[in-house]
């Protein structure tokens, strides 16, 4: 088995290959403005590093967000297109779950919160229990509005680090690493567990102003 994992729902453009036992290659570049340019070269790079070709892939895992939409879509459409062209399954995973998995892997114990930057002074966030299981649906909120819900537990992710008054105890990792997403997916596959669909978690409706009638040009 050779699983390609990728995630573009945060400033990190991150790609990894997993052979069912280990992540055999990975690449993470943090650049919030160039997801579209960086992703495919990163896929090519990890395959080359692993001595594999794209035709060797047996499945694809993609972070479905939540995350800023433009970047998020780069990963999702890339995964869907690779999956269709190669005829391999595409599995979705919540981006926040990847960060949670990496944090636990790094030694974090007890309940915690994962928070990524949602811009506009908001965070995408979810809470996890002491077994690392997500206990809330991913949501987008102003940090001050969720202060009571996240108080008393450490927080993971670059979004948390932006708001020290709400998240005073921030733990690594700051950024998503597809190797964690790949390991999480490999475990789920081995256990025969279901994946969420590889569809975007936008959490907000599209910004769209309905024009208020046409502009009158004659003086009133």
């Amino acid at each position: 088995m050779l699983l390609l994992a990728l995630d573009t729902a945060t400033p990190a453009v991150t790609v990894a290959l997993h052979d069912g036992r280990d992540a055999v290659a990975h690449s993470t570049v943090v650049d919030a403005r160039r997801h579209g340019e960086l992703l495919l070269p990163a896929v090519d790079r990890v395959l080359t590093r692993a001595g594999a070709v794209v035709g060797d892939l047996t499945g694809i895992v993609v972070g479905v967000g939540p995350g800023p939409y433009t970047g998020l879509r780069v990963g999702l459409v890339t995964a869907a297109s690779l999956g269709d062209a190669l005829g391999v399954p595409v599995h979705g995973l919540c981006t926040l779950d990847g960060l949670a998995y990496a944090a636990r892997d790094g030694g974090l114990t007890g309940p915690f919160t994962v928070a990524t930057d949602a811009r506009r002074k908001e965070v995408y966030w979810a809470r996890y229990d002491d077994a690392g299981a997500r206990v809330t649906e991913p949501a987008v909120d102003r940090p001050a509005d969720i202060a009571a819900q996240v108080a008393g537990a450490p927080a993971v992710g670059a979004g948390a680090a932006l708001y020290p008054e709400v998240f005073p105890d921030v733990r690594p990792p700051a950024h998503q690493d597809a190797a964690a997403l790949a390991a999480l997916a490999a475990g789920k596959l081995a256990r025969g567990e279901e994946f969420p669909p590889a569809l975007p978690l936008y959490l907000r409706r599209p910004d769209a102003q309905v024009p208020a009638g046409y502009k009158q040009v004659l003086p009133k």
Binding site: G36, L39, L40, V43, D44, V54, Y69, T70, R73, V74, V77, T78, A79, A80, S81, L82, D84, A85, L86
Partner: peptide, 20 residues
């Protein structure tokens, strides 16, 4: 439109890469 173009460009790259 930048965000709209990006969806097509990303898809085209993935198909081209996967199909060689």
């Amino acid at each position: 439109l930048a965000g709209a173009l990006l969806v097509g460009v990303s898809a085209a790259k993935a198909y081209a890469y996967a199909l060689g």
